[in-house]
């Protein structure tokens, strides 16, 4: 087949056809992946809730209260109708590479049960250590009301991650934001 000459109608026709076909192909793939993308986002939230709270039998995603739009949300968990704790999706924008998102689980008395990192883009090998138990387990069983949950440099009782004070401070910031939300929305 001869190569099409570069005349104006040819050029317009060829480019338009390619663009239209490609746009159709894309919207097909978009429709196909829309569901799975939404589901994997949901799964991340439900997995994080299950990780940071003791056993529960309701669906906390349906029993939620947003304190700060989509950014801070309190999920209430119950077992046999009794309140066992609340998971708080929280954030900080003070991270070394901007924002990161945590899930903090509180027991009814306000003490922290566990923490899970949902989304972060901190420096691998440094800031990412916040997800490891050595750092985040320091928060377990502590109550932000009674314990000073800031890094030691700021007079608190948390050992900062080596060479990642900024990340450690941001982590504490997110936790205290979660506690504020818990007080506002978790106890009722």
């Amino acid at each position: 087949m001869q190569k099409l000459a570069s005349t104006l109608p040819n050029m317009v026709l060829s480019l338009t056809t390619i663009s239209v076909v490609m746009a159709l192909a894309l919207s097909f793939v978009y429709q196909k992946t829309k569901g799975p993308i939404e589901r994997s986002k949901q799964a991340k939230i439900t997995n994080a809730i299950a990780e940071v709270l003791p056993e529960f039998d309701n669906n906390p995603v349906e029993d939620k209260l947003s304190v700060e739009g989509e950014k801070v949300i309190v999920y209430r968990a119950t077992k046999n109708g009794e309140w066992v704790g609340s998971a708080v999706k929280t954030y900080t924008d003070k991270g070394f590479s901007g924002e990161f998102i945590l899930m903090v689980g509180f027991l009814p008395d306000g003490s922290i049960y566990n923490i899970s990192v949902i989304e972060q883009k901190e420096t691998p090998g440094l800031g990412t250590k916040m997800g490891e138990s050595k750092f985040k387990d320091q928060f377990k069983q502590k109550n932000p009301e009674k314990n000073n949950l800031t890094v030691k440099k700021d007079g608190g009782e948390i050992d900062a991650i080596t060479a990642s004070t900024i990340t450690s401070r941001a982590f504490c910031d997110a936790v205290s934001r979660a506690y504020e939300a818990f007080k506002k929305g978790g106890a009722q």
């Binding site: 190569k3 000459a5 060829s14 894309l26 793939v29 993308i37 994997s40």
Partner: peptide, 30 residues
Amino acid sequence: NVIPNKVRIPAFIVIIATFVTIVDLTMNAF
């Protein structure tokens, strides 16, 4: 042969960008 010479670069870019977006969406999902 159906892409005229003068518009080949934009045509290539459209083709490449489409496959990139397909990879983008698929990886996001799975």
